[in-house]
Amino acid sequence: MIEFKNVSKLYKEKAALRNINMTIECGEFFVLVGTSGSGKTTTLKMINRLLTPTEGTVSINGVDVQQSELRELRLNIGYVLQSGALFPNLTVCENIEIIPEMKGWPKEERVKTVHSYLEMVGLDPEQYMNRYPHELSGGEQQRVGILRAIVTRPSILLMDEPFSALDPISRNQLQELIKRLHDTFKMTIVFVTHDMAEAVKLGTRICVMSKGEIVQLDTLQVIKEHPAHEVVKRFFYEG
């Protein structure tokens, strides 16, 4: 369980987040949605300590992340960026096996695992293991980025607008893929998007943010039937 208690983030006295209180349950597909500058990425980055709160606490299973050993914390939280952020000088196999190698997995186990995971996301290992990122399409790069993030089976996966730069077909395919992976591995996914349609498609619960605050946090059905704020109405029906 991930818990935010009275979390605020200030930049030169300007509030990026204001008094955020919420709980993300284990195994949930939790979506943060909002326009640019709403605070959703700032909120996400609090979980793996890429950013620290000015006030309040973020905890995982009751432990304040600020008290956690940083390397251990990040090794156990998967993270997928918009661009995939693959290392251009490493092959697909080498990119995916970085965290297993850091955790001391034997080479044979690493390669075997990469092989099976590539098959799981529809990339033929014989064709893709030794390719470099520049030899992949955008959608293929994101599949590899997702595999790198989940290969050690982390309990938490953070995804920061991972599909927004892709064409509609690739985006739809990867949305379906991440739903299947969530169902398979039962990990907690915290997913950032500015696209309400994507939030609706993926989220167990949706947290709508505006100007650094939570304006509504609930299931799709409740938000659709009982929008709690004008921002939610506008975002849901016009976004």
Score class of each variant (00 low, 15 high):
1 M>C: 12
7 V>L: 05
8 S>K: 00
12 K>D: 15
18 R>C: 09
18 R>A: 08
20 I>R: 03
22 M>K: 01
23 T>K: 10
25 E>A: 15
29 F>T: 10
31 V>T: 09
31 V>A: 06
33 V>N: 01
38 S>Y: 05
40 K>W: 00
40 K>L: 05
45 K>M: 14
45 K>Q: 14
47 I>Q: 12
49 R>N: 10
55 E>S: 05
55 E>W: 00
65 V>H: 01
69 E>W: 06
70 L>V: 13
71 R>W: 09
73 L>N: 06
77 I>V: 08
77 I>E: 05
78 G>D: 08
80 V>F: 03
82 Q>V: 04
83 S>C: 12
86 L>N: 01
89 N>R: 12
90 L>H: 05
93 C>L: 15
93 C>W: 13
105 W>G: 00
110 R>D: 01
118 L>Y: 09
120 M>R: 02
131 R>W: 12
139 G>S: 15
143 R>E: 02
153 R>S: 07
154 P>F: 08
159 M>Y: 11
160 D>C: 04
163 F>L: 05
163 F>P: 07
167 D>M: 04
168 P>A: 02
170 S>Q: 07
175 Q>G: 02
175 Q>E: 05
175 Q>V: 02
175 Q>L: 04
179 K>C: 05
180 R>S: 15
190 V>S: 03
191 F>H: 13
201 K>S: 11
201 K>G: 03
202 L>I: 14
210 S>C: 11
213 E>I: 12
214 I>D: 11
220 L>E: 04
233 K>F: 07
234 R>Y: 09
235 F>K: 03
